[in-house]
Design a binder for these strands. Structure first.
Length: 600
RNA sequence: UGCUCGAUGGUGUAAUGGUAGCACAAGCGACUCUGACUCGCUUUGUCUAGGUUCGAGUCCUAGUCGGGCAGCCA
């Protein structure tokens, strides 16, 4: 069980053109209630771009007292897998948990659409699981509609609006023409209804090899919209399906399955990304061709997320996984929800980000700094502070006796209304960060330098007396004097020095592995490269052996900490154990000083 | 050069015919036992040209530039 952080509320609902439309439709009483859906294909893990869509769809449901169905858009058995189904469920629950759980809808496990008769017409309805009854639930599956979809396809054929075509895939392609040139009618376009019906049934029975026939909508081969040039509705695929097993030998295509799935579920607003704009005419055509009994859903499109220094494409992320450029879909460097979670990014921060970036139809590139800001903002409020030294340099406080232990009170989180404290042990030997010492300090260096003073946070001010090196000139230790009058309760506790640094006692600390993550790509727009893999950041992961204050030994997986002056760190959910923690750096603290001129 | 969608500071977004605002970023300063946080200040914007209007980022026309579309993927 990992510690979840959903403390920060998601900010007030934004407004955007889609929410405006929803409000308008509600005012017009176009629908009884608002139903959206999030329809991932289980062919990869969900990423930060999906989070934008989830927050939009679930957010609209939440704001309007409606629901958002989680639906597997699983019409292509050759690319899909239960591993992905499981990860999608876990990631969506994580993202929505503590925020809008009541509006994320599942169906009863094993349920298939109810078949009803409305005004003499056969109708299919896929109901959500009743709330609070404790029945087992699962996501909606487009594949649960295969029977209903088949019936709709038969109905289309009967109405003369679809036909079985025998053209090969290559010929189908050639007949389609190109955007600026009309296509050509298939010779099978005029085939009789009965013949198409019989052929379609034999396709279903598995009598033909892949590609031998297809079911096509009869629309207009000369349409300027290529998606209206008799698009395929069904293809033959002799493949088993992760959810329906070996039952089907034909599978519907996206355009046919999606609009009808929306209809079966009573979706009102079917929100998708811009690349589907051209498909909207087909979406409407299919639904309008069937004389359906209930109000029809409508499709609205928004621009998907593009994030700086990030790849937001399941296909490309899959390549990183398959080629082992990363350790898996949940590698903390991945922009997947699993990766972000493992990295220590709170779900609330992802949600906040999704709300901050807005919803438009402009294809933009969001600065990754916006995301980093929401992560820091969330963690600053929620993360307990601890002291840790990543790259230790030994200090000997010469005026402390060996074995002497001075207790110090350290604040756990200064952002808390009533900050609590914990005890830290100050001993003769301590470690400080190597960055916090400079033998030849640059200008305005506030940290430890020869003859200089610095405060050990929560302890006292120390003065550097002597730098000890070995014969080769390598640093052995720094010998300092501790001014114990500057400790809490001491007469000079208020003495000011420019620098305060973090430290850990050499005898009261633990050794732990810490993984320092940096951005996975070296360029702002890796997707725009000829080959995005050529700009993978070779320094995106550095594993170090750090010295941590002893209380960190008990850190729970998923629990966020701020290592003071360094950044936010979270025990790795897979490899960290209580007693032997392994920390992932979620994100560094903002550093407005260390940046050398001209550096990144 | 078919169809389609779009264009507001460096980035992202708001303003629904009436004072161009917010966030991030950047810069300066204050505060500080985290060079963090917080606070204050500052820089920078309506693609172009016409038109409608008392008034246009918003409406109209034309242009420019950019995105998407020709999988038996979704």
């Amino acid at each position: 069980m990992t510690v979840e952080n959903n403390a920060a509320p998601t900010p007030a609902a934004p407004t955007d053109f889609i929410r405006d439309l929803v409000a308008q439709h509600l005012a017009e009483k176009r629908y009884d209630g608002i139903v959206t859906r999030f329809p991932p294909e289980p062919n990869g893990y969900l990423h930060i771009g999906h989070a934008k869509s989830i927050c939009l769809n679930v957010g609209i449901a939440l704001e309007n007292g409606g629901r958002c169905n989680l639906r597997m858009d699983d019409t292509n058995p050759t690319k899909e897998d239960v591993e992905y189904v499981d990860s999608i469920i876990a990631d969506v629950k994580w993202l929505v948990g503590g925020w809008a759980d009541a509006h994320l809808a599942f169906k009863s496990k094993g349920a298939t659409p109810e078949i009803r008769t409305i005004n003499g017409r056969t109708d299919y309805y896929a109901a959500p699981a009743p709330a609070g009854t404790g029945t087992a639930v699962e996501p909606f599956y487009a594949s649960d509609y295969f029977d209903a979809l088949y019936a709709c396809a038969v109905e289309l054929i009967r109405r003369g609006k679809a036909y079985v075509c025998d053209l090969s895939p290559e010929d189908t392609d050639a007949y389609r023409g190109s955007p600026d040139k009309p296509g050509k009618d298939s010779p099978f376009r005029t085939r009789g209804i009965e013949e198409s019906l019989a052929l379609f049934e034999r396709m279903k029975a598995g009598e033909f090899p892949n590609g031998a026939h297809s079911l096509r909508a009869k629309i207009d081969m000369a349409s300027p919209n290529v998606w209206l040039r008799d698009p395929l509705l069904y293809r033959i695929r002799h493949a088993d399906h992760h959810h329906t097993g070996s039952k089907w030998r034909i599978y519907p295509l996206y355009d046919f399955a999606h609009c009808l799935s929306d209809y079966f579920e009573g979706i009102t607003h079917s929100i998708c990304t811009l690349e589907f704009v051209d498909h909207r005419a087909l979406y409407d055509w299919i639904l309008e061709s069937l004389d359906l009994a209930r109000p029809l859903p409508h499709q609205y499109e928004f621009a998907k997320l593009n994030l700086g220094y990030t790849i937001v494409s399941k296909r490309k992320l899959l390549q990183l996984v398959q080629e082992k450029i990363v350790a898996g879909w949940d590698d903390p460097r991945m922009p997947t929800l699993s990766g972000l979670r493992r990295r220590g990014v709170p779900a609330a921060a992802v949600r906040h980000f999704a709300y901050n970036i807005g919803i438009t139809k402009f294809d933009s590139l969001t600065d990754v700094a916006v995301f980093e800001h929401t992560i820091r903002e969330n963690l600053n409020a929620s993360a307990q502070r601890r002291l840790a030294v990543l790259r230790p340099v030994k200090i000997v406080l010469t005026n402390l006796a060996p074995g002497e232990v001075l207790e110090c009170d350290a604040v756990n989180n200064p952002q808390d209304a009533q900050p609590s404290t914990r005890k830290l042990a100050l001993t003769r030997e301590v470690f400080i960060e190597s960055d916090d010492f400079a033998e030849v300090p640059p200008p305005k260096y506030f940290r430890l330098k020869p003859g200089g003073e610095v405060r050990l946070k929560y302890a006292c001010i120390i003065k550097l007396d002597e730098i000890v090196k070995d014969a080769s000139g390598a640093l052995i230790e720094l010998r300092c004097t501790a001014d114990l009058t500057t400790r809490a309760g001491g007469p000079n506790v208020d003495k000011k020095v420019k620098g305060t640094i973090h430290w850990v006692s050499a005898s009261h600390c633990i050794d732990a592995e810490v993984r320092l993550y940096d951005r996975l790509f070296t360029v702002p727009e890796p997707a725009a490269e000829e080959d995005f893999k050529t700009c993978v950041n070779p320094h995106s992961l550095e594993v170090i052996a750090a010295k941590l204050e002893t209380s960190l030994r008990e850190a729970q997986a998923g629990q966020p900490f701020q290592f003071e002056r360094l950044g936010y760190f979270t025990p790795d959910a897979k490899e960290s154990q209580v007693g032997k923690p392994v920390f992932n750096r979620t994100i560094s603290l903002k550093d407005t000083w260390a940046k050398p001129p001209g550096a990144k």
